[in-house]
Structures are given as structure tokens and as C-alpha cells.
Design a binder for these strands. Structure first.
Lengths: 291, 291
DNA sequence: TCGCTCGATACCGGATCGGTATCGTGACGC
DNA sequence: GCGTCACGATACCGATCCGGTATCGAGCGA
């Protein structure tokens, strides 16, 4: 009997439904089914009756449930007490100034709830650095978007999102249900800073790198303003909120962008691993990859 | 933080020495070192100072140690309570009538202490069946000796023991410090039952299968009595206790016998796995193999 | 009877565990 | 001062475990 399986058991007991409990635990149903069966085998007792609408506690299950809560609470208290003796810890989180910023709020909230003793410092990066300070060592972990050049970074996909072309609502393209970038004549793309990551630049400014002109944009907001006032074009995630007067037209010939939490590949600290796990669970999407 | 690591931590804290704690936990030092480091990483706190003579608790370590005992106790109580609701379980243990019998006492004691709700039934097998009832499905787990033919059995070595030639003390060989079976002239070997496992028979009665004559022996005691009264020869583990008047001469040209706990390879029950683990820990010797 | 919704199972890649062999480092005796 | 010793740490390996996807069998209802 271990605490992990006990937490699973409590979730199932309260949901009376393995599928729902799995969702609550941010995992899928099969491993949870198996974990419950293993717990039953370990204890040598059936904990649930399987019924058509889900599961219900057996007598042994009720016995366990009566005690499980206080045991888990005590374990949490012990852990918190130890953490308290060592004093507060700090985690620097890098964030790019688009949806990552919104997400950071949710994730930071979840993280603070789970690890209240850790103080979080948010570092807001500009568009030149899609690693949001990770490469420079300014932050421990970052919320940003793929693709960008990976230099010893690992990332976990939180959300996959198609990109769209942001134009003024008086633009001829504004009414189109979708566009193909390869069908468009040359447009005036917003310009990214000179030292922008090459992969990132190529992804977000149409295929022709030579096309970006004008003053470099350092934030998403600047980009959108450039579209609004100067008639530039920009690419943005489809559900990026835009000011009135702008529309985002889905782009069909470009792979979707992936919102990720990223961290240095080499020896991430437990705090970083914890943040990544919480980010993944808060924003439950699967798939770990490098890049 | 999980209960397993917490138990490790308590052992180390009490021994103030990772190596000794590892011995107490019936494991080796490196994985215990690693587990402690992982626990420290999980908690974000150093639990021990490493000093030349071992380790000593840090402040965080003392905090954890103060709480760990009661937490583990509560976990054990919860588990026991659940087991109690489901009623007693039964485990059938097969045993061959030599040292396995002695061992069974120790192991059964350890098992009863750890799992008091399980009632153990001992099945004492005769020499014809080195699987001690496992093959016939009479028992769930067996204490016996390799080698014998494996038919879907798995085993865990508890003890490796050279074999010796059992002779009367008036035998010319009795004074020899050791003998080579290949040097001996034909002797009158005790006879094993006709349906004895072939590998087992070849191992325990010298190389020449034709040599065993006389009435078949069903127990070790019968074999020894045959040696004592009829001047037969027998092979036995070196530390087999023999009646007065018999001596066991080490045999140098035969591999040692291995005392094992054996169980069916297919889907062992948790109770069986538990018994095997306890047997291995009680009699700490490493190495799992088939056969 | 068909479709829907449960949990259970099969299988796979990655992580973890405990093992052996070996290393780095202080303490101690000569 | 230097070899020896004892301690924990590290490297690496095979076995196991964990969570994932795909799929199945069983009940229930339309």
C-alpha cells in the first residue's frame, strides 16, 4: 500500500466512477483501473463492487475510506512541516507575452495552492527570445510556444492551437473563412527583433524572411497595434484575443503552434519538475518531447 | 514522498549509517543512498549531514523523524484494519523434509508476524517430489532445493550450500577432509522413489543412476537411517544435522545445492509474492532465477 | 437488436528500482 | 607523508512499474 494508490482510491471512492476519478486525477481510465486492482490485490480485499453505472464501496472499501483521508492529511502535514523548516524556495518562471501570460495565471494559482512555501517570480520575455529567458539562465522554467530552436531544452505540450492571419476588418481577406499563406501575394509582415530565434521567426512571419520590414515589435500587443494602425499582417494563435477592428483568419497550410512548458534538459530541480507536472495537470494535454 | 522512502529514511535515521540501514532493510547500500537523496530532493531539504562515520540528522531530518514513526504506524494500522474486515486468508506452503523444514520455522514466524491474519498450512512432501507439491497444485509456494526440473516454476535462492557424502564414522572415507565423487568406487547409494524427478535423482545419488538399490527412501531421516544401519551412502547438504555415528564429508566435484523458495510462474497471488519477499528478507540471499 | 457507457485487458515506451562494480574522500596507523 | 580503510556517491544494467493508446466484453436503454 502506498500513498499514491491511496490518493487514487479516495478519488474513485468519492466519484463512484473510475472514468470521472481519472479525469479528476488528470490521467486516463485504464491505469487507474489497474492501480485500483493492484491496491485490492495488495490488501487482499475487494474495495469496490463494479456496477453498471460505475463502482460502489464494499465493506472493506468503506473501512479504508474512513481512514484514508486522515492518513493522507497527516502525510501532507508532515511534508509541509519539513518543507517549512528549510525556509521558502524560489522559482523563476519565464513567460511570453501572449496566451502564456493568461495561462501563467491559472498555473501559478494551481502551483501556489500546491506548494505555498515557494515564491514565484515571473519574468516576462519579449518576442526575440521564445525560450523566455531559459537559454540565458534567467529563469528555471518557461511557458512559451513551439516551434523554436532547442538548445538543451525539454518541453511538455500543454495545448495545440492552429494559427491564423491577423488583419484589419477592412482587409479584403477579413471575410475569408480561411486562407493559405502560399496563395497570398507578398504582404507587409510585422517585423521581429533582429536577434529573434530563426525557427521562430520563420514560423511566425510567413515563409519569406525578407518580407518583414518596419520597426521591430517586442510584444504581441505591439504586433497587433501594428496591424491595426499600419496595415501590417501578423500570424497569431487562433484564440489570441485581439482588439476590436482586427480579425484572425484561420491559416490552413501551416502546422498548429504548441503552447508548452519548457525547462533545461540537464538536471531539472525537483521544484521545476513539480511545476511542470502541475502545469501539465492544470492544462491536461499529453506528450513530452524535446524542442 | 512515499511510504517506502519514508521507511528507508527511518532506518537510516536510527542507524546513523546508510550501510547498516541497508543491511537492516535487506538491501544494498547504493540504492538506499539514492533513495535518501531522492527523498531529500522531493522534500527540497537536506535530511542528513554526511560525516565520515556515517550520517547525522539535520534539523529538517529531525523534524521528519519526529513525525515519520506515527505516520508509518497509522498507515500500518489502516492496512491491518482493512485486512481484518475481509477475514482470514490461507496460504499452503510445501516443504521438503530437510533444512527446508528448519527454515520454514523461521520464515513462518516472520511471515506470521508480518501478516498475522493469514493462516499457514504446511505440506510436508517426500523426496519423490522436489517441488514439494507445487506441480501437483497442492501448495501455493514451496521451500525446497535446486536442482530439479522446472515446469513453469520460478524460484528465489535463499542459501547456497555445498553437498557432502554421508557415511558411517567407521567408513574408510569418514576421516577424509573431502572426497571427489569421480574418485570413488561404486557405492551402495540410498534409493529414491521410482517417480523421483530425474534431475533431482541424478544430483543426489552420484552420477551412476544404476547404482541405487534397496528399498526407496521417502524422507531424509529414512536415508540417514539407511546409511547408519545398512552402510549405504547418501549425499546431503553439508550442514544437514545427522544422527550420532554419521559424518558428512565435503564433496568437491559437485556444485552446491541451493535452498530456494519456489512458486508457480503464472500469476502468483499477492500472498505468495508477500511470502517470497519475506522468505528472501528473512534469509537474505540474492538471485531470482527460473528452475 | 443496436448503440452507448461502463470497467477490463493488451501492449508499448519511458521511468524507477535494486543489483554489481567502482569511484572520491576523509580518518587513521605506520 | 602516505598507504589503507571505511564511508557515501556514482555509473551502469536488467527487471519491473507506471501511464499512455487501442480495443474488448458486459449491461442497460431506445
Amino acid at each position: 500500500m502506498d500513498l499514491r494508490k491511496l490518493r487514487y482510491f479516495v478519488a474513485v471512492a468519492e466519484e463512484r466512477h473510475i472514468g470521472r476519478a481519472a479525469a479528476r486525477l488528470h490521467m486516463t481510465q485504464p491505469p487507474l483501473s489497474r492501480a485500483i486492482r493492484q491496491l485490492e490485490a495488495d490488501l487482499g480485499a475487494a474495495l469496490f463492487h463494479r456496477i453498471p453505472t460505475g463502482v460502489e464501496l464494499t465493506e472493506a472499501g468503506r473501512t479504508l475510506y474512513d481512514d484514508a483521508g486522515s492518513l493522507l492529511d497527516q502525510a501532507d502535514r508532515v511534508e509541509a512541516r519539513v518543507r517549512a523548516t528549510v525556509g521558502p524556495a524560489t522559482l523563476a518562471v519565464g513567460s511570453l507575452a501572449d496566451t502564456a501570460e493568461l495561462v501563467a495565471g491559472r498555473i501559478a494559482t494551481a502551483f501556489r495552492q500546491r506548494r505555498p512555501e515557494v515564491s514565484i517570480r515571473i519574468h516576462e520575455a519579449d518576442l526575440a527570445d521564445p525560450s523566455a529567458g531559459l537559454r540565458a539562465g534567467l529563469v528555471d522554467v518557461a511557458l512559451t510556444r513551439l516551434p523554436f530552436q532547442d538548445a538543451g531544452l525539454r518541453s511538455h505540450v500543454l495545448h495545440v492551437e492552429p494559427v491564423g492571419l491577423v488583419v484589419r476588418d477592412d482587409d479584403p481577406l477579413a471575410a475569408r473563412p480561411s486562407v493559405r499563406l502560399s496563395d497570398l501575394p507578398d504582404r507587409r509582415w510585422v517585423r521581429l527583433p533582429a536577434d529573434t530565434d530563426q525557427v521562430w521567426r520563420a514560423y511566425w512571419t510567413g515563409a519569406t524572411a525578407a518580407a518583414d520590414r518596419g520597426a521591430p515589435m517586442r510584444t504581441i500587443q505591439e504586433c497587433l497595434q501594428a496591424v491595426l494602425w499600419n496595415g501590417m499582417s501578423a500570424l497569431a494563435p487562433l484564440d489570441q484575443v485581439t482588439p476590436a477592428g482586427l480579425v484572425t483568419v484561420p491559416v490552413t497550410d501551416r502546422p498548429p503552434s504548441r503552447l508548452v512548458v519548457a525547462w533545461p534538459a540537464n538536471h531539472p530541480s525537483p521544484l521545476v519538475r513539480s511545476f511542470v507536472r502541475i502545469a501539465a495537470k492544470t492544462y491536461h494535454r499529453a506528450g513530452t518531447r524535446s524542442g
